[in-house]
Simulated scan of single mutants.
Amino acid sequence: MTTLRIAVVTAGLSQPSSTRLLGERLATATEKALQANGSTARLEFVDLREHAQDLANNLITGFPAGSLRAAIEKVTGADALIAVTPIFNASYSGLFKTFFDVLEKDSLAGIPVLIGATGGSARHSLALEHALRPMFAYLHASVVPTSVYAATEDWGSSGAGGPGLVDRIDRAATELADILDRRPAVRPVDPFDDPIPFAQLLADQRA
């Protein structure tokens, strides 16, 4: 049975956060869909709220601090990504954008991504298509067809989510699981992962 690493990036600012809740729902649904395909998932959550100061420092210095570096490695080393942001002023949050701004070029190339967002009303739902989807396309990620937006009204009085939201979550999760099931994960090869021993380099020079 194949175990796939799925990074779940959420940019909620409050605790508890509806953005984190949507990320959890999408992750659980994806895990369930993968199990139906004969695979298992290892979910790794990255709450950007915890890295806000380090992200600002990274923009200035060009280097991520230890905890932020670990979060970045979770994302760039994953087989798939679930990315969820609150919508502010008809677009993704600054915190969400900053995280993806500090990633190395092509570090998300080829990775399947499920995008989601939360907001106060349904009128902000198109931000997924005019802001998030183009950003991930620019990063050469492979975004699944269904994006998931959850307005306050979608959660219902119980906070469990109405049938419309549940259906969208399940559809998007199934699309992500099917992409992962159809092809092996292809990640960029780091040339420093398996360096040529120094003694061999010397021998080659002498020869």
Rank of each mutant, 00 (worst) to 15 (best):
A41L: 08
S14I: 07
L34H: 01
A41P: 02
L43V: 03
Q15Y: 08
G12F: 00
L26Q: 06
P16C: 08
N37P: 00
Q15P: 05
E24V: 10
G23E: 02
A41H: 00
E31D: 13
A41I: 04
G23S: 06
L13T: 15
Q35I: 07
K32H: 14
L22I: 14
K32M: 08
L22F: 11
S17E: 07
V9R: 03
A36N: 08
V9A: 04
L13Y: 08
L21R: 15
G12W: 02
E24A: 10
L21S: 15
L26T: 03
A27P: 09
A27K: 06
R42K: 14
Q15W: 06
L13M: 12
E24I: 09
N37Q: 01
A29L: 05
S14T: 15
T28F: 02
R20T: 15
G12P: 00
L13I: 11
S39V: 01
A11F: 02
A29I: 09
R42N: 12
G12E: 04
A36F: 02
Q35N: 11
Q15S: 12
K32L: 13
A33E: 02
L43E: 02
L43S: 00
G12A: 02
E31C: 10
K32E: 15
K32I: 12
G12T: 05
R20M: 06
Q35S: 10
G23V: 01
Q35G: 13
P16F: 07
L34N: 02
G23A: 06
T10S: 05
A27T: 12
L26E: 03
T10E: 04
A36L: 06
S17V: 08
R42C: 09
V9K: 09
E24T: 14
T10V: 03
Q35W: 00
A36E: 12
L26W: 04
L26P: 03
G38I: 09
E31W: 05
A36D: 10
T28D: 08
S39A: 13
R25F: 00
G23M: 05
R42S: 13
L26A: 00
S18W: 08
T28G: 07
L43Q: 03
E24L: 09
